[in-house]
């Protein structure tokens, strides 16, 4: 009867970089400011929201994934 012999190897850490944590709380400046109405089809949540500024007009575009259109809300300025 002979003993089983095992070959040990030093394993490498082959996973993704763990030094970075993309916590939501660390995100800043991810929302683009645009001067014309967006027309593209976004592929990420962050591309779904655009701050609109053109002259004195300020508004917010949000992509409606159900109807495949951009919805627009304009900032009301009292006369």
């Amino acid at each position: 009867m002979t003993d089983e012999l095992k070959n040990e190897i030093v394993e490498l850490d082959t996973g993704f970089n763990k030094e970075v944590k993309n916590d939501l709380i660390n995100l800043f400046g991810m929302i683009d400011t645009v001067s014309s109405a967006p027309t593209h089809t976004p592929v990420r949540l962050i591309d779904q929201i655009k701050l609109y500024r053109n002259g004195s007009t300020t508004g917010l575009y949000i992509y409606d994934t159900t109807n495949k259109t951009w919805a627009y809300i304009e900032h009301y300025v009292a006369p």
Partner: peptide
């Protein structure tokens, strides 16, 4: 006595980063 045995999953342990010892492979 046995001083080395290669069998079963040992054949699937791949190449080592260095030849001097088993780093990431056998």
């Amino acid at each position: 006595t046995k001083i080395l045995e290669l069998k079963t999953t040992d054949w699937m342990k791949g190449l080592s980063v260095q030849s001097g010892f088993s780093l990431g492979g056998l």
